[in-house]
Design a protein around this nucleic acid. Sequence first.
DNA 1: CTCCGTTCTGCACGTTTGTGCATAGTGCTT
DNA 2: AAGCACTATGCACAAACGTGCAGAACGGAG
Lengths: 324, 324
Amino acid sequence: MDPSRHADALRAAQMYYLQDLTMDAIARELRTSRSTVSRLLSSARDSGLVQVQIRNPLDTAPELEGLIRRRYGVDVHVVPVVETLNEAETLDRVAMQAARTFGPLVDSNAIIGVAWGSTLSAVSRHLTRKITHDSVIVQLNGAGNMHTTGITYASDIMRRFGSAYGARVEQFPVPAFFDHAATKTAMWNERSVQRILELQAKMSIAIFGVGSVDADYPSHVYAGGYLDENDLKILAGSDVVGDVATVFFRSDGSSDGIVLNERSTGPALSELRQVRRRICVVSGVSKINGLKGALAAGLATDLILDEATARRLVDLEGMATSSR
Amino acid sequence: MDPSRHADALRAAQMYYLQDLTMDAIARELRTSRSTVSRLLSSARDSGLVQVQIRNPLDTAPELEGLIRRRYGVDVHVVPVVETLNEAETLDRVAMQAARTFGPLVDSNAIIGVAWGSTLSAVSRHLTRKITHDSVIVQLNGAGNMHTTGITYASDIMRRFGSAYGARVEQFPVPAFFDHAATKTAMWNERSVQRILELQAKMSIAIFGVGSVDADYPSHVYAGGYLDENDLKILAGSDVVGDVATVFFRSDGSSDGIVLNERSTGPALSELRQVRRRICVVSGVSKINGLKGALAAGLATDLILDEATARRLVDLEGMATSSR
DNA sequence: CTCCGTTCTGCACGTTTGTGCATAGTGCTT
DNA sequence: AAGCACTATGCACAAACGTGCAGAACGGAG
């Protein structure tokens, strides 16, 4: 963009947001029209110059948030949505709020791990720009399958993240699942793969949704042709409730002995837990069982979810809790 | 405030600022009128729930800011104001932007030192609320003089800071200057005074303006009856250019041998320099000489000033300095 | 220099938002 | 229970704002 235009946008933003002048007054000071100021301000907003944050002190948080925070030890953001909205609209609004909530966390020199799926796809469409330096977006797990490369879908997500934050994008060009564990072992020794794995090991932020085996309409992982019938049968027989980045777990958060994980390409749960900020985005009550498993596994430090799911999360919980 | 109203304000703010709904749409979801939503949002704004920040990456900063930042090693915020504005209007806008700029820096458990004067008074009128815990506002220097207690003026400033941040206010009930250095020594051994001094020693943020001896209309310090003719004569004879919190310095930033400082109640420059964040607010080109001295003394880590003064600061600079 | 495609600008209009005012509600006092 | 003081609400109007459109300005290419 024209640099003098950027300077004007900055001045306008300062005058509008910090000095409470009207656009009209700003237009006079900048010797231009009010409509130009309006446009300058919107360019300031979506170039990340202006950042709006909602910061609610913990002790005045709605009790729903307080309950989840205390029970699961995660930093939670409940997205207010009315019940009457359909799944797609809810997802869209959760995604928009999620994008804006973690936007401020992104900083220069960050290494950001990003999963893929319908949730992340929605999130990626609502990112607000923010200029950073030397940041890297790294793909958490492979996206190919036996029918399509799957690359375009996942890579669109990655590309959007990259351009929003001015970051380098590192794709992970492997299938979502290997057919044979031995192939994975072999590939994991390839230097091209190791470069990605090393980046993943240094992630400062990871962003992912959850898959839930019994979701109303199941995640890509279960329906997208990534797994064959035999695989699904194995899953069903091992108490698996869901996955994060194609790594499966049970409702108690355990993942040992799930053979499919030996062929999947996402980071092991223990590796994921090493990441400082782990942001989980969930929309839709039908993901509740997967979500519970993920929380039991301690996979998230930050949880962004819609109100209905949040409510279900505390209501359906069996154990006796503090009332109010 | 009514807690359910606070909850509504939070919901409304999330929907408005994070989901881009119109107030109309929010009103329908909250089953209330649009005007109520408008009011909820403004209460969310000025209760500090919504925070707007302008974050400009250093490498796209206007060159004026870059120059000052590099030359003086301070984090600088230039407030855009047109030349045609009078002093009072300029001060008002600088103060408003200053208040909103350092608002985000204030946090729980902070100990905030605040000076007094016309600049700080203006700033205090524009603070945006922010709820913190166990924060303390501590007065940097005494405010009494031989004519009035001066307390109401300074204490108004303190009170506004305290209520904006929900912080305890610790006044410093001593005159601005003692008549005799010996009295100061004696008072400094009083436990009531020591309590304040100890707080000052633990400050995490200090906020102050600068006085300039040759300002068009001089600061309260020089004109408010705090100093008698003899004092002013001494000042004139010792190359003093300005003061911060009633402690004087020369244009090279030195303050040794200025006898008046032995009777003044503000923190010694060396003590002030211990504070992590030291925010200096300046409005009006006539303060330029005082400001230069303060910068030479390395008193500020953050500088907020109007555009005209900023420009003067880089233009008039004769020497090739890089002091700190 | 002229042409053409692109970007920027201001206008005009419709939409969205802020606010004074009258009314309804709420809680406290007696 | 009634009265009173204070606050919250919705209405209606005015102010502020966003945006499609047509023309102006700009920036190469020939």
